[in-house]
Structure formats: C-alpha cells, structure tokens
Computed example of a mutant assay.
Amino acid sequence: MDHTDHSHTHPTTTTTTGHDHGVGDTGGHGDTGGHGGMAMTFYFGCSDVKLLFTGLVINTPGEMVGACIGVFLLAVLYEGLKIGREILLRRSQVNVRYNSMPLPGADGTMLMETHKTVGQRMLSPAHFLQTFLHIIQVVVSYVLMLVFMTYNAYLCIAVAAGAGMGYFLFSWQKAVVVDITEHCH
C-alpha cells in the first residue's frame, strides 16, 4: 500500500487541568520560573498579590497596608508565644531534685557539687497548655513562612519587622537569673 499521497495532520489536543504553569506570563511579579505564576524573585507590588488563600487577593495600596499591619502583628504574636511558653514552663516546673556529684579539688581533696534537676509531669494541665500553645506557635510560624514565600517585599519586610518588634517587646523577660550562691553556672 502506497502512503505517499496521504496527508499526515495531527489534531491538536487541548487539555485543561485547571493549573496555569505561568510559562511566559509573569503577571508583573518578576520571573516565575514556571512555578504556577508564583514569583520566584522579590518584588514590590500592590496588585494581584495572592495572600495564603485563593480569595485573599491584594489589589490596592490600602489593602497592602492592611495586610502588612496584620502580618506585622502576627509576627509579634509569634515572638510573644515563644517567650510566653518559656515563662509558663518555668512557672510550672515540678519534681525538683538535687543530685550531688564528687569532683576532685585543686589541692587533691574531693568536693561535692550539687545540681538541681527540674521536670514537668506529662499528664498535667500545664503540659497540656504547653502542647496547645506549641501547636499554635507551629501553625503561626508556617503561616509566616508562607507569607514570606510570596516574595512580595512589602510583606517580607512586615514579617521581619514584626519579628524584630516582638523580640524587642518580649525577649527581655527571657533573661536567665543566676543565683550567685550556686557553685555551678
């Protein structure tokens, strides 16, 4: 059979998957690198900025200011949660034990050094509260990470500034108090 007179045309098949891979369309946000329209470089912009959810899109400078304030406060909350959990842990520590350990002295004598060991009960209300607060802290940290991954410079600055403000406001409470009467620091 002779196939020389047959024209070989292939129909174009169009499939719709519901995913735009952003090839050739940067949406004004810099290089997407084919990652679903998501910017892969930092940019300053206030229009068509998708923030965490499909329906949460920033389109005006006023919306960006509001989003930055919200992100700033969320970052402050994250730092407050970290320090607050440490303070609660210190307050709820129980099972204080003193362990003595012999140590050789400088002149060949034996000295006894005492170490204080503290713990917490697993099934205590304080531990359940710590667990709940830890879950909130993890969720907030991932939300802040996802906000930073928008690569929107305004939002990234809000995350960093909020973390800095939260550290400034709360870290002074983290100071370790050293008892000068203890031998081991």
Rank of each mutant, 00 (worst) to 15 (best):
T60Y: 04
S47W: 05
M145I: 14
M40R: 12
V140C: 06
I135L: 07
V143R: 02
D31Q: 10
L129H: 04
L73N: 02
D5H: 15
G36Q: 06
V57Q: 06
D20I: 06
E79Q: 10
F72T: 00
H185E: 07
N152D: 07
T131V: 06
G105F: 08
L146W: 14
G24H: 04
F170E: 05
V94P: 05
V139H: 04
Q93S: 08
E86G: 08
L56N: 11
K50D: 09
H6L: 14
L111I: 15
A175F: 06
F53G: 07
M101A: 12
P11H: 13
L77W: 05
G105S: 11
D31F: 13
H29N: 10
P102L: 08
I87V: 15
L146G: 10
E182W: 09
G70L: 06
N95P: 04
N95Y: 12
G84D: 02
S7E: 10
S124R: 05
T131I: 04
G66P: 04
S47I: 14
V143F: 01
T117W: 12
V147I: 11
Q120H: 15
G162M: 00
T41H: 09
D5N: 13
H10T: 09
V118P: 14
F53I: 13
A158M: 05
M165A: 13
Q120P: 15
H134M: 11
M64A: 06
Y78T: 03
I87H: 08
V138Y: 06
I83T: 04
A106M: 11
V71N: 00
T54D: 10
M40D: 06
R85D: 04
G166W: 00
M112A: 09
V140E: 01
D107W: 00
V139G: 01
E113L: 13
G84F: 00
H19Q: 09
W172K: 07
T54V: 14
D48I: 03
G162H: 00
H127E: 08
V57T: 13
L155Y: 01
Y167S: 02
L74F: 07
S100Q: 13
